[in-house]
Simulated assay, not measured.
Amino acid sequence: MTVQLGREQQLAGGHWLLGAAPSLQETRATWEESGSAWLRPGVLFGAVVVRAGVVHAALGTDSPIGCAPLVDVGGPVFYSDEGFGREGAYTALVPASVALVWSVNGSLPHHRRALLEVPAPQVVMPERAGRPWWVVPLDGPGLLCDPDLLAALVKQGTGAGDAEGGPGA
């Protein structure tokens, strides 16, 4: 018998996320059918949305797939083609208290209790156009991004953009 710890952690993380679902059964079914569902951050976790251009400037690449192995903020991050208005964005799951006070140029806290489209735990590559996918997958229940690492990434990206007249300018 082979134990797949990564898969077990992913399932446990997904089950934990379902605690933020308006309807447990409906959300689980929607995850299965479409690969993403609407969750309500605010108690279990908060969310910070970072413009794709900021992350790309910080990591020196312009592709979400190219960024995936480079994003290191200590917790789960997903990408959406239209997460920041009409621009792509990375959404980092952070402690709920962090999202309440977040103020770093190039990023925005997701409004507490507003619905957020979150990919199903197993969606770790872009599968459907316009649907979010995990760049840094869930690694278990309650494991969230480190706010200091996230702030450093955003500041690096906005600094790179300022220097080049790009994303942070």
Rank of each mutant, 00 (worst) to 15 (best):
R40L: 12
A21P: 00
R86N: 11
G142N: 03
R113G: 07
V49P: 02
R28N: 06
R112F: 05
H15I: 01
S97H: 15
G130W: 10
G83S: 10
V73C: 13
A21Q: 05
L108R: 15
L116G: 05
L24T: 15
L17M: 11
N105I: 06
Y79M: 03
P132M: 09
R86W: 10
V71R: 04
T61Q: 08
W16L: 11
P22E: 07
G106Q: 08
I65T: 14
G161Q: 06
Q10L: 09
W38M: 12
G130S: 06
N105M: 06
C145Y: 10
P119C: 05
G19E: 00
P76S: 05
Y79V: 02
W134E: 03
V77L: 08
F45R: 10
R112N: 15
W134G: 05
A151Q: 11
A37Y: 00
D162R: 14
A92I: 08
A29N: 14
A160P: 00
L70D: 11
W38N: 04
A129G: 07
G165F: 07
V136D: 03
E33I: 00
L17C: 06
E87I: 00
L143H: 07
P119E: 03
V54G: 09
D162P: 00
G85T: 10
E33A: 06
D139I: 08
G6A: 13
P22S: 05
V48W: 04
A99N: 14
N105D: 14
G165H: 09
T91L: 05
L138M: 09
L93T: 13
V48S: 05
R7C: 01
Q122T: 10
N105T: 14
A29M: 03
F45D: 05
L149W: 13
S107T: 07
L17Q: 05
R7Q: 08
K155E: 15
E8P: 04
T158R: 06
T27V: 01
G166E: 13
V123C: 08
T2K: 12
A68V: 01
P76L: 07
M1K: 09
G42N: 10
V55P: 15
A160I: 03
A152L: 11
A47Q: 03
E33W: 02
A114Y: 14
M1S: 11
L39K: 00
N105Y: 14
D139W: 07
K155F: 09
V49N: 05
P121Q: 04
P121E: 05
S36M: 02
L143V: 14
L100T: 15
F45L: 08
W31R: 00
C145T: 04
R40I: 11
D81H: 10
G159D: 15
D146Y: 10
T91R: 12
R131H: 09
T30K: 07
A129C: 02
L144F: 12
P109K: 12
A57E: 15
G168L: 08
G168I: 07
V54H: 13
L150E: 02
I65N: 09
S34V: 04
E32Y: 04
R7V: 02
P109F: 04
G6Y: 08
M125N: 06
L11K: 12
S23H: 15
L150I: 06
G165E: 07
V118I: 09
A37T: 06
P167T: 13
V49M: 02
S63C: 03
M125A: 09
A151E: 04
G159I: 03
V50S: 05
E26I: 01
P64N: 01
G142F: 11
E8M: 13
L59P: 10
G165W: 05
